[in-house]
Design a protein around this nucleic acid. Sequence first.
DNA 1: ATAATGTCTTTTATCGTGAAAAAACAGTTT
DNA 2: AAACTGTTTTTTCACGATAAAAGACATTAT
Lengths: 335, 335
Amino acid sequence: MPGLFREAISLLRAMGTSYCASNRPPQATACNGSGMSKSNNVYKDAYNRCLRLLDETRSLPSEPELGTLLGVSRTTVRTILARMEETGLIAWNKRAKTVLREPRPDDFFPEEETDTLAEIIERSFMRRLLAGGAEAGMQINELELAREIGVGTTSVREFLIRFSRFGLIEKRRNSHWVLKGFTRAFALELTEIREMFELRSAAAFAALPQDSAVWTDLDRLEDEHRQLANDIATRFTEFSELDERFHRLIHRASRNRFIVDFYDVIAMIFHYHYQWNKAQERERNEVAIGEHLVYIEALKSRDLGKVDAACRKHLKSARQTLLTSIPESRSLQKS
Amino acid sequence: MPGLFREAISLLRAMGTSYCASNRPPQATACNGSGMSKSNNVYKDAYNRCLRLLDETRSLPSEPELGTLLGVSRTTVRTILARMEETGLIAWNKRAKTVLREPRPDDFFPEEETDTLAEIIERSFMRRLLAGGAEAGMQINELELAREIGVGTTSVREFLIRFSRFGLIEKRRNSHWVLKGFTRAFALELTEIREMFELRSAAAFAALPQDSAVWTDLDRLEDEHRQLANDIATRFTEFSELDERFHRLIHRASRNRFIVDFYDVIAMIFHYHYQWNKAQERERNEVAIGEHLVYIEALKSRDLGKVDAACRKHLKSARQTLLTSIPESRSLQKS
DNA sequence: ATAATGTCTTTTATCGTGAAAAAACAGTTT
DNA sequence: AAACTGTTTTTTCACGATAAAAGACATTAT
C-alpha cells in the first residue's frame, strides 16, 4: 500500500492551484528557476497592512512605533518605507513621512504572496487529506509532498513534525510517516478530551472574581453573538471565527497551558471541518449561537450546575455535527 | 535580557562533554572537518545488538529475519554482516552465516556512537536547562545551540519544534524561542492534566473484560514490582523504568491517542527529574512501589471506588515529589 | 512457488549556504 | 538625555546537496 495520494495528486495537478508567489502564468511548473532561499512574505504582508494605515493619517509615526504596530522589525519597516517612497505614496526624509496619495488597489501585493510557507504547506496538505482517497494507513512521502507543493523538503519535514501533535499522522523511525486518518475514532477521541477540558475550564471561569477582565470580554462576546444572531441570514459564515474566540476565552480560564494549547487541535479540526461540511451550515450555526447564549448566561449566573449543563449540551451538539461530517465508510479500529 | 545560557555555556565549555562520535582526544573542537552528512548510528547500534545475538546461536538467521529482529532494513543488516565477516566473527556465504568466535568487548562500537542526533541534542539541551541559571523568559538561540552542540541548525530547529509540545518553550514568530522555565506552575499544570487523564484511564482499565490481554500484563508487572521490592536496597534505580511501563499500560486503557501521547510529556519530565533529584531516591521509590501494589490490587478488584482512591493517593505523592524537587525561588506567575 | 540473496533506486537525515528579517550598535536630531 | 535614524552584525528560514538507510526489483536457491 505504498504512496499516499499518488492518484489524487495527478488529478489535482490539473487544477494547478499553485500557492507559489509569482505573477507568472499558471502553467509555470515550478516556483522558480534556482535557489530561492526565502520568500519575503513578512515584508509583503506588513506592507499591505501598512497601506491600510495610510488611509487614516496624513503622516506616519516613527520607525520603531510602526514596527510594533505592524509586528515586524525596524528593518522590515524601512524596506516598506523605501518602497512607499519609490511608488510615490509618501515623501520620506528622516522623521518626516508625509502621505502623498491614497493607496490604489494595484499598490497591494497579491494575497497569495503574503502567506507563510507553513500556511501554504498546511492548506495543500489538508486539501489532499480531505479531498478523499486518503485512507488510514497510507504512507506520507516527504520528498513527493515537497515536490508537489514546490517547496524544499526541510519545510515539509518541519510542518509534519508540528502537525504530528494533532494526532492525525505518526512517524516511523528512520522511515516514512503514516496517515492515521480523519476517522470517527479520531473525532471521538478528540471530543472526549475537549469535553473534559472545557467542563473544567468553564467551572474555573465561573469561579473567577467579579473584577476579573474576563467578564467584560464575555459581555463583548455576548453582544457580538446577538448581533450575529440578528443578521444570521447573511452573516452566518462569520460564526466559525466567533466560535473560536469564545471557546478560547473559556479555555484560558483554566490557567493551564496544556488545556489552552489543546484548543489548537480543536481549532484546526473545526476550521477545516467548516470548509469541508457546508451542509445546513446556516442552521447549525444558528443553533450553536443559541447554545452559546445560554452558556454565557450560565457563566454569568456563576451557578456551577447551570454552567455544567449548558456546557455539556453545547459540546454534545458540537460533537454530533463533527461526527455527521465524517463518512461512515472509514475504518473504526485503531492502529 | 538577551542570550540564553550565554554565561553558563562558557562555563560548561571547559568540561568538554562532547557527544560527537569520535575516538579523537577531547580537545578536538568540532565533530569533523567538513560536510559530515549523517552519522551511521543506526548501523552501529544494530551492530552492537547483533553482537549480543551471536552469543546464543551457532549461525544467524536469514537477512529479512535479522532485519525485523533488529528493527532495521536489510540494507543495514548486510552492512552489519559484511563487517562481521571482515572482523572474523562469522563466515558469510549466501545463506550460511556461521559464527566463528565469541564477540570481544572491543568488537562493540562505543556507546556514544550509537545515539541518535535527537537524543544528543535533547540531553545537551536538558543539561543546560537543569544545570541552573536558566531563568524563565530567557531567549533560546538556535544557531548558538547548534554551534555549542556541534550539529547543524536544521537538527536543532526540528528538535525545538518537537520539544515545544512539552510546554517548556514557546516560539516567537520569525524570531527566537522563549524559555518558559521548569517552574512550580509548570509542575502543577502538568500534574493537573496527568491526574485527570490517569483517573479516567484507570477507570477504563478496571472496566476492561476479563479476557483482555492487559490483565496478564498487569500480573507480570505486579511480579516485577514484588521482585524489585525484595531487592530494593540494590536495585532501587531500576524503578523509574518500571514506573513508566506501569503507567503507560494504564493510560493505554483509555484508548485515546491524546491521553496516550500525553504520557510522553510526563515521561520526559520524570526521566530528567529522576536524574536531577537524587535525594531520598531509595525511600521515594520504596513508597511508590508500595502505592503501585495497592493500585494494582485495586485494579484487579475492579472496584471503581478502590481504584479511584488508590490512583488519587499515588498521584498525589508523585506530585509532591516532583514539586519538592523544584527550587522555590523560581517565579510563579505565568507569561 | 516461496523465500532467500544480489543489485539498483528512492527516501530520509543532516549539513552548509545565502537571502530575509531581526537585533545590536553607532551616530543624529530634537 | 531620550528617542529617532543610519549602518552593521546576527539570527532565522528555506534551499540544494550528499551519505545513510530504506525500499523495490531482479535473480537465484531450496
